[in-house]
Amino acid sequence: MSMPGNQVPLLAVRGLKKHFDQRLILNVDRLALERGQSYLITGSNGAGKTTLLRVLAGLEPAEIDSLAYEGVSVDTGDVVRQLAPRVIYLHQQPYLFNTSVAANIMFGLKANGVPRHLHKTLLEEALAWAGVQHVAHVSPHKLSGGERQRVALARAKVLNPAILLLDEPTANLDEDARQQVNHLIRQMCDNNHCVVIATHDPELIALPSAVVLRLHHAMLTGG
């Protein structure tokens, strides 16, 4: 929540409100995400954690007074087209396109016009980073939950996003898979990415340096 010194935050949001029917789900006065900082957004089930991440990614419409990325104002009517892939959202159960693991990781490279001669190297690096080289040419439906989560992380990381929004990334994973995913998330945090994680149980995410924000009665507190 803090804005230390004169540093311009990576993403600054003011006056964010989200209603579902008549019910106010989010009422966030001010939120600033800093480069290299990780955040844990906690709160009970149904508190609006997922909605907050989706609004920040531009996948969910909301009333926003002002939104700025690196100090530059963003049109709140079309957030996703302006911020993607600098801001990437991962679903709680990530969706992998019905192609192959390698094609999934290459998706963003092609979509963002990354020069073709770089694809192979970037793909191999991403596969190795996530430890999924052995399933590179496998169809996603054959992967375990942990592998799917790692492939989705690799697919995002290959685009070098400034902000990664993760929705309960370790929920429904067994202990081994959780540790592997946690390891990847820590690496993303160490590499100066801003990682924002929604979780109902901060114990599941071993990130001692993270700023913990609590979402309660639509308000965000802590930090």
Binding site: A57, V80, A84, H91, F107, K110
Partner: peptide, 16 residues
Amino acid sequence: RRAVETARTLGAGRLR
């Protein structure tokens, strides 16, 4: 619904 959202958040334009 996650398919189109995933494409968008990964930076796909309308055609892709």
